[in-house]
Simulated assay, not measured.
Amino acid sequence: MNSMSFLTSTLFDLYIMVIILRIWLQASHADFYNPFSQFIVKSTQPVVGKLQKIIPFMIGNIDITTTLFAYLLCVLKLMILTIISSSTIHFSSTLLLLGIALFIKTAGSLLFWILLICTILSWVNKNHGPIEHVFYQLTEPMLMPIRRIIPIIGGFDLSVLALFIGLQFANFFMGDIIGPIWYRL
């Protein structure tokens, strides 16, 4: 059953990341007409659009309806993985709390991958395509405060490295707080 767990986990993680990207794009006021932004919106609109008609709820720039949908997918992923691994399901408040932890971990993983892709694109892509522009809009609010502390040294921007170290620290810190289950999420 490891193959089914892997496939289930990967498919859920990818779709949850796309939904979190939608939330993040909206919260950061990224270019809506960018082809990458349009892909994210179009791939999530069939479900999110219907949910927003039922429960239109925003707090500031954060779409709470879409955030709740991503959280429910995290809980559903945990339930399905529990069924695959043990053939039984025990719905409890622990599952709801682990759903929050999984949401946080998926958002952190998404940030890591976007930073990594931005770094690689900055090395090889000199014409700054539409995806790089949106990723810049997403990551710049996090990198700018770090650049104030650690300026660009000899053409090297170490702010991304500092954020990578911060993400890794947060990952280990959550592992210390939650325990070994954090690494299995």
Score class of each variant (00 low, 15 high):
residue 98 L to F: 13
residue 96 L to A: 12
residue 87 S to R: 08
residue 125 N to P: 01
residue 78 L to K: 10
residue 130 P to T: 09
residue 105 K to W: 02
residue 7 L to G: 10
residue 125 N to S: 13
residue 24 W to T: 13
residue 40 I to E: 01
residue 88 T to F: 03
residue 8 T to M: 10
residue 123 W to F: 14
residue 135 F to D: 01
residue 40 I to N: 01
residue 154 G to H: 03
residue 117 I to F: 13
residue 177 I to F: 11
residue 25 L to H: 03
residue 59 I to H: 12
residue 81 L to P: 00
residue 147 R to I: 07
residue 158 L to W: 02
residue 14 L to A: 12
residue 118 C to I: 04
residue 120 I to S: 04
residue 155 G to L: 06
residue 50 K to I: 13
residue 111 L to K: 02
residue 83 I to D: 04
residue 63 D to E: 13
residue 146 I to T: 05
residue 174 M to I: 14
residue 152 I to S: 06
residue 139 T to C: 04
residue 105 K to A: 11
residue 6 F to P: 04
residue 131 I to V: 15
residue 89 I to M: 10
residue 11 L to M: 12
residue 2 N to P: 09
residue 145 P to Q: 01
residue 126 K to T: 04
residue 114 I to M: 13
residue 161 L to F: 08
residue 37 S to P: 01
residue 164 F to R: 03
residue 177 I to Q: 07
residue 83 I to T: 10
residue 9 S to E: 08
residue 166 G to I: 14
residue 168 Q to I: 12
residue 88 T to M: 08
residue 170 A to V: 12
residue 68 L to S: 10
residue 54 I to Y: 05
residue 135 F to V: 08
residue 69 F to A: 14
residue 66 T to R: 01
residue 38 Q to R: 14
residue 21 L to A: 13
residue 182 W to K: 09
residue 40 I to G: 02
residue 159 S to P: 01
residue 87 S to P: 00
residue 6 F to N: 14
residue 38 Q to S: 09
residue 8 T to C: 15
residue 109 S to A: 09
residue 148 R to V: 00
residue 62 I to Y: 06
residue 159 S to C: 02
residue 177 I to Y: 10
residue 17 M to L: 11
residue 113 W to D: 03
residue 81 L to Q: 14
residue 184 R to P: 02
residue 103 F to C: 02
residue 30 A to W: 00
residue 5 S to C: 08
residue 164 F to C: 06
residue 158 L to N: 00
